[in-house]
Simulated scan of single mutants.
Amino acid sequence: MGCKDCCSNCLQCLFGYTSPVQLVINNKRVGVLFRLIQLLIIAYVAVYVCWFMRAYQDTDSVISSVSTKVKGNILTNSSIGGVHVWDVSEYVIPPQGESSFFVLTNMILTPNQTQSKCPEIPDELTKCESDSDCKEGLNEVHGNGVQTGQCVQYSDAIKTCEVQAWCPLENDTIIPQPAILGAAEDFTVLIKNNIQYPKFRFKKRNILHHINSTYLKSCTFDHITDPHCPVFRLGDIVTEAGEDFSDMALKGGIIGIFIDWSCDLDFPEHFCFPKYSFSRLDNKNPENNVAPGYNFRFAKYFKDNENSETRTLIKAFGIRFDVIVFGKAGKFNIVPTIVNLGATLAFLSLVNPVCDWFMLTFMKDRDYYAKHKFIHINQKDDTVPLVSKSNQCIL
């Protein structure tokens, strides 16, 4: 064979087309298995991939900003504080919250504290019998001041080490019951939430288009009757979280307000709206009830007629509300559609090998099928060539 013939045969192989031989098997068991696997793959792609996961869409995560405004007033009358009207600037800390705000529900007041000397609160470390049991200058981490080295009378039966501190000292062992500001459950909070999906240039807020000022002053959120109102009653929030407000108000806690902005932007804009849910976030475990609730201390300072500094110490118990915004938006995009369509076709290409394996492994006539499925060619035997010698190509 000359070089010219060899090159001609190679060109025929290079630009030739080979079509696989299809073996048609009229067997109901194999046919049912073949269609069943095809149906399962198509159902998986159509239901889970396309409908549930929306794999034909491009996605983006929400960017959010939140501001809150609480409203309400409470009248209290206690032996320590007397008659007092509490407004927003006193029971909401800070008064204008953002994604988190604290509402005061209970407290321990220690009024008229001044910088002076007084006996320490009794415990194992502060009780004493004589001055030798006290160490001048000692500053206990859990104490209320700096020891003076003197052992003084705390009560008729108890002596404790004297401390330089804000006196009289706070005694927080007795928590007022019921909660002093338990009526805070009737307060309302307006939550203003602005969100955007930058990839899709989509912006919206939870005060929807149909909400005007008149409606906003009178509406209160309800899952059934008014699910789009951004004004929430605090008692309803705690109830929706599965808690009792009067119990939670005693020692405080943390409530999560969840705003879900998951949207399908293939639909019109008015179908994208927030969905609210509520849950208690702090640990409430009766078997491990160490340091329960939520509290902190702050003080109000003033000066008397003699220009001496005096303060009222407040141990505040209350409920902290955390507004947590999350969501994901999707919109049709040709790239993920093509990718997932290709994956579907790849899955379908696996059906034939599975059916072949079933046919050649479990069928009674598997040897007969194998005889027609596989053609064994002896390369030394010229009687059954795969291609004629004149057309052989070496690539």
Rank of each mutant, 00 (worst) to 15 (best):
residue 177 Q to C: 09
residue 26 N to F: 15
residue 367 D to H: 08
residue 122 P to I: 02
residue 66 V to P: 01
residue 202 F to N: 10
residue 85 V to L: 13
residue 319 I to S: 08
residue 92 V to F: 05
residue 252 G to D: 04
residue 274 P to M: 06
residue 92 V to C: 10
residue 309 E to L: 13
residue 138 L to C: 06
residue 182 G to Q: 13
residue 354 V to Q: 11
residue 181 L to R: 01
residue 327 G to C: 02
residue 4 K to V: 15
residue 46 A to P: 00
residue 254 I to D: 10
residue 319 I to T: 00
residue 304 D to C: 04
residue 15 F to D: 11
residue 128 C to M: 08
residue 238 V to F: 02
residue 302 F to H: 12
residue 142 H to I: 12
residue 228 H to C: 04
residue 346 A to P: 00
residue 134 C to S: 06
residue 353 P to V: 06
residue 266 D to I: 00
residue 320 R to W: 02
residue 349 S to Q: 14
residue 231 V to T: 01
residue 28 K to N: 12
residue 292 P to T: 05
residue 341 L to N: 02
residue 391 N to Q: 14
residue 133 D to Q: 11
residue 344 T to W: 05
residue 184 A to M: 11
residue 287 E to H: 09
residue 167 C to G: 02
residue 141 V to D: 14
residue 328 K to F: 00
residue 277 S to T: 12
residue 290 V to C: 12
residue 163 V to G: 04
residue 309 E to K: 11
residue 119 P to Y: 07
residue 343 A to T: 10
residue 289 N to A: 14
residue 278 F to L: 03
residue 363 M to E: 14
residue 369 Y to L: 15
residue 52 F to G: 02
residue 373 K to I: 05
residue 381 D to Y: 06
residue 59 T to L: 07
residue 131 D to T: 04
residue 58 D to N: 11
residue 263 C to D: 02
residue 123 D to F: 03
residue 179 A to S: 09
residue 311 R to D: 07
residue 289 N to L: 13
residue 272 C to S: 04
residue 229 C to P: 06
residue 100 S to D: 14
residue 87 D to E: 10
residue 185 E to A: 12
residue 275 K to M: 13
residue 258 F to R: 08
residue 344 T to M: 15
residue 387 V to C: 10
residue 388 S to W: 05
residue 210 H to F: 15
residue 187 F to A: 03
residue 73 N to Y: 10
residue 334 I to Y: 14
residue 322 D to G: 05
residue 63 I to S: 13
residue 369 Y to C: 05
residue 208 L to A: 02
residue 114 T to L: 05
residue 43 A to K: 05
residue 258 F to P: 04
residue 377 I to D: 09
residue 80 I to T: 15
residue 171 N to V: 08
residue 235 G to H: 01
residue 35 R to Y: 09
residue 167 C to Y: 02
residue 128 C to P: 00
residue 295 N to T: 03
residue 77 N to K: 12
residue 76 T to L: 03
residue 324 I to G: 03
residue 244 D to H: 08
residue 266 D to S: 02
residue 212 N to Q: 11
residue 322 D to T: 07
residue 97 G to S: 08
residue 369 Y to I: 08
residue 31 G to L: 08
residue 30 V to Y: 07
residue 183 A to Y: 00
residue 114 T to P: 00
residue 261 W to Y: 03
residue 353 P to T: 11
residue 71 K to E: 12
residue 222 D to C: 03
residue 143 G to K: 07
residue 51 W to K: 09
residue 328 K to Y: 00
residue 188 T to I: 01
residue 149 G to W: 03
residue 360 L to Q: 05
residue 14 L to P: 06
residue 279 S to Q: 08
residue 319 I to A: 01
residue 371 K to Y: 11
residue 187 F to G: 01
residue 244 D to W: 01
residue 11 L to W: 04
residue 253 G to D: 04
residue 185 E to R: 11
residue 70 V to L: 07
residue 5 D to C: 04
residue 249 A to M: 01
residue 19 S to L: 13
residue 40 L to Q: 04
residue 22 Q to R: 05
residue 323 V to L: 10
residue 342 G to M: 10
residue 293 G to C: 11
residue 56 Y to C: 09
residue 179 A to P: 04
residue 29 R to M: 10
residue 270 H to G: 04
residue 335 V to M: 10
residue 176 P to E: 12
residue 324 I to F: 00
residue 351 V to N: 00
residue 53 M to E: 14
residue 204 K to M: 12
residue 218 S to R: 09
